[in-house]
Design a protein around this nucleic acid. Structure first.
Lengths: 198, 198
DNA sequence: ACCTGAACACCGTTCAAGT
DNA sequence: ACCTGAACACCGTTCAAGT
């Protein structure tokens, strides 16, 4: 890249990232309805017109925030499955727990990530991790001999549904404590695996 | 009910329902970002303050719209499973297809339904239908002997995840035609059933 | 009882103007 | 090059006033 990256710019290094961080703070503090471009600009200490030098419009800021969320989700799942001494079945369970816990921990970001029209599933890092686990299971003979994409979709679909229901508050986990949610996720994941293994 | 229902009121019968219908039209025509209370009032032909006689605030209108969506979803699923000569497995597949097709057909309503914090799953009519199918399968011995709530959650979770991914455009069904989406739903549903039957 | 119009404090976006 | 301030067309909500 010939145009390099000029560090400095103006304020906290560069305003682009400062705005993204400010947007994250505003989102958790004021909720999605309070996430106005003007509020983000205020939180970053600039005028309400300044963000337009860094994002074409509000939607562009939201997309960038959503993309950062996908990256963090991928990191969270990597952390519990990559280079772990688990078999594919256990990895699938741990990935499911991490997925749902991420969603519950960052409900606003999660809603944002899956609200707009996004890139196809193949470009989501977390999906690639899941697919790798499935391939491992199929290759070593413990999973059914079906196209890995098909088994991966079954598993992803279930994880994603559970996460979205949890975020929407439809799950009625008693007293929304974290233990019972984890138990629920593990129970569903075990059932999904039952349908995936030979 | 002593207070009966007074038909007439003002305009199209009663403004409350007229506003709900107008909101539905605005939502599909202008998208979620165009769904302002003032736009709804304009579409219904009243002043921007009139809706406040019928809904406490904008959130109340949105909740009513969401509730109407849940009712229509329940109706759509009923239509394909109630009083049909299918076994529980086939009913599960047909219900899944109806669920996802409803979501894809009304993406904005679907987003709305599962965006806010709602009633717990037990109060969603469509979930009761699913649970009845599961109970039927367990009782007649074709489904595994597990708590029906657990199996129902596995199935619901998968249907819901598929629906949400489809709505978000993450599914990359070739040319978003309806046939390939239905095939995808059936493939996932068959895999889920594989994990539910004995 | 039900609706209107003006008013207030917000928005997103644009654009001339400043340094 | 980057940011500001005013301006415009919108919002949600409230409230006195009309019929």
């Amino acid at each position: 890249m010939p145009s390099g990256q000029v560090v400095g710019g103006y304020h906290h290094g560069d305003l682009g990232n400062a705005l993204l961080e400010a947007a994250g703070r505003v989102l958790v503090e004021k909720g999605p309805s309070g996430l106005s471009l003007r509020a983000v600009a205020r939180a970053a200490g600039v005028s309400h017109a300044a963000p337009y030098r860094h994002f074409r419009d509000k939607a562009a800021l939201l997309r960038a925030l959503s993309q950062a969320g996908f990256e963090r989700l991928g990191t969270a799942i990597s952390a519990v499955v990559v280079a772990k001494p688990y078999g594919p079945e256990q990895k699938l369970i741990e990935a499911s727990v991490a997925y749902v816990e991420f969603s519950v921990q960052y409900p606003e970001i999660t809603q944002l990530m899956f609200a707009g029209t996004l890139e196809p599933l193949e470009q989501v890092a977390a999906y690639e991790l899941l697919l790798a686990i499935i391939r491992e299971g199929v290759e070593q003979g413990s999973f059914r001999e079906r196209p890995p994409q098909e088994l991966a979709l079954v598993a992803w679909t279930s994880m994603h549904g559970l996460a979205m229901l949890a975020v929407a508050g439809l799950l009625a986990v008693d007293g929304d404590d974290e233990r019972s949610l984890q138990e629920l996720v593990r129970a569903v994941a075990r059932n999904v695996i039952y349908g995936i293994v030979k």
